[in-house]
Design a protein around this nucleic acid. Structure first.
Lengths: 187, 187
DNA sequence: AACTGCTCTTAAACTATCTTAATATTTTTT
DNA sequence: AAAAAATATTAAGATAGTTTAAGAGCAGTT
């Protein structure tokens, strides 16, 4: 029985033997980070895929005028990275910052490729992971273009109560794409 | 050498032997549909994943007030379905309509599952497909919350020139989440 | 050729959202 | 515990986007 939640997360979709679990863990690194530190900064190449064992993080875009747009939050048991930078090896536009102190597992791109080759069932695991991620993002895009800010705010707090507990209203506003002042006014 | 583009599309990411191609084709149906006909209607269960051999389609949400929000367009060589309905077997919110007469390949959910079991390399194919779809949708979500309508319009026409040729401005407006009148005014 | 329906454009009045700024409240640092 | 910094609220004036309506341009019928 491993102490790492990442193995349990993986076993939501595929099964692993004891030996397989041990092998998988050799490819992941474990890391603790402090609140307000970054695991990714705009301009760099995103080298790792992260899994949150504990704590919470936020991925956001910072534009020239200093405006932040939050792309995603990640709490315990979630995966996070800049997938476009990680997969396509292009400089990232994002910052990923710890909202509190975190326990993080991470895997390098080359080790993930090795995993796909040595254990093809991981193709299935990530197929399902990306399938769900795609469905969520498509739903977000639909809500962005079809609902009012008020409706989107209420959907957010009812869909992601675990996130709402950990983040500021300013950050929720930046996820919804409105100013904190406006979000405050519609409550 | 098959006449079906779907096999060439699949071979962008995995390789197939002659026998494998033949087997794959036994699981796909081929269908021609007329302009303005539907392959999916709001309220139904989405039973199939579609691939566009030729022609173009549009997936949109229609709300109670009669407003349309376009979720995606699909042109030749694209895959389209309501993934949430297809995967999670829930009633769809979407219509998918042919913008012109189309040649369509489709696979039922149970046959796709068979394909995953008999030919696990399809897990890899769809892992990559969903990975790219997720990256695109995340980028769309970021643009929706961080850019002006004018910027999003120009990004759209430069990113999807093949789509722009086939669709009306009204439909582009519904993809961007603004009224046709406003889109007309910013040009 | 006339009719119908649909798209596109323009404009005026209205509503949603932003900007700025001031104040209050909460959180973090010392 | 006090001081400093960040967040939240409120309000006034500005900008972005919608609504409604009317007319012009096209494509498909009849």
């Amino acid at each position: 029985m491993s102490k790492y939640k990442v193995l349990k997360n993986i076993q939501k979709h595929i099964t692993l033997t004891k030996n397989e679990k041990e092998y998988v863990l050799t490819l992941f690194g474990h890391q603790k980070i402090e609140k307000k530190t970054f695991i990714l900064k705009q301009g760099l190449l995103c080298q790792k895929l992260f899994f949150v064992e504990g704590g919470s993080l936020r991925a956001y875009f910072l534009d020239e005028e200093g405006r932040e747009s939050t792309i995603m939050f990640a709490v315990e048991d979630w995966w996070i990275t800049d997938m476009d930078s990680f997969v396509n090896k292009k400089p990232t536009l994002l910052f990923i910052e710890a909202l509190e102190s975190c326990d993080i597992m991470s895997i390098k791109h080359s080790d993930l490729e090795e995993l796909f080759i040595k254990m093809p069932k991981f193709e299935r695991f990530f197929r399902i992971l990306f399938q769900n991620a795609y469905i969520r993002e498509q739903s977000r895009a639909l809500q962005n273009i079809s609902l009012t800010t008020k409706e989107r705010y209420h959907n957010f707090i009812s869909n992601y109560p675990a996130i709402v507990e950990k983040v500021s209203q300013k950050q929720i506003a930046s996820y919804l794409g409105v100013t904190p002042e406006f979000l405050s006014s519609i409550k």
